[in-house]
Each structure stands twice: as C-alpha cells, then as structure tokens.
Computed example of a mutant assay.
Amino acid sequence: MPSAPPPPPKPSLPRAALLGLSGGLLLGGLGLLAVGVKGVFVAPDCTALSGPECELIQQAGQEMGRVQTRFGGALVALGAALFVLLRRWRPAPPGPP
C-alpha cells in the first residue's frame, strides 16, 4: 500500500519577513545602482553656471555616482545572498532499494 504524501510545510512568518527584506534589498540596490550609473556617465546641465562651478558639479556628481554604484551593487549582493539562504530545499528523492 503506498504511503501518503508528506504534508506541505507550514508557512513561517519570520521567513516571509526575511524574504520581503531580501526583495527590498534587491529592488533598492537595483535602483541605487541605476542612479549611480546615471551619475557617473550622464553630464549635468551647466547652462547657467560658470566654468569652475560646472566643473565642481561634474566632479561631485561623478564621485557620488561611484559611491552609489558601489553601495547599490553591495545591496544587490546582500539581497541575493539572503534569498539563497532562505529558499526552501527540497529533499532528494529516495534512490532505488
């Protein structure tokens, strides 16, 4: 007589909260990464500024873009690592006797 299938695992509130945190880290990291890349590669509008002011704004934008890119990448990595740690592992099917 075949045995009954195992019952489905119970939902876990802490696990669900941590998966939500992981998703938030991933989305926030991707957003910060996009803003940082834009800051590094897109030049700001300097129509009403003098030469030194424009240069200062460009340098500050590039430096902030670099910092945002690094932190965005770190947040994406943390979110992915947390997701990998929290995913459910299915047990391996039993082998032949």
Rank of each mutant, 00 (worst) to 15 (best):
R66Y: 09
G95P: 15
S12V: 10
P6R: 03
A74M: 15
R70L: 08
G39H: 09
L78A: 13
G20H: 13
C46W: 00
G72P: 05
R87M: 08
A74C: 14
Q62H: 11
P8Y: 09
A92Y: 05
G29Y: 01
M64Y: 13
A60P: 14
R90V: 02
V76Q: 00
L75K: 03
P8L: 03
P91M: 01
V42I: 13
P97K: 11
L85F: 15
D45W: 00
R87Y: 02
W89I: 03
L86Q: 12
L75A: 09
D45M: 00
Q58E: 14
K38S: 03
R88V: 12
V84A: 10
V76D: 01
A74T: 12
G20C: 08
L56Q: 14
P9H: 01
G51D: 02
L49G: 00
L78Y: 15
K38M: 12
A16I: 13
V84H: 13
L33E: 05
G28P: 11
G36Q: 06
F83W: 10
S12K: 06
G23N: 08
R90W: 12
Q62T: 15
V76R: 07
P44V: 00
A43C: 03
A4H: 11
G79Y: 06
L33T: 06
G29M: 01
R90F: 05
V35T: 05
F71D: 07
T69Q: 10
A92H: 07
G36W: 02
C46G: 02
R70F: 14
G24W: 15
P97T: 03
V67L: 11
P8D: 01
E63W: 04
L85A: 09
G61A: 04
T47R: 14
A80W: 13
G20A: 12
R15E: 04
F71S: 12
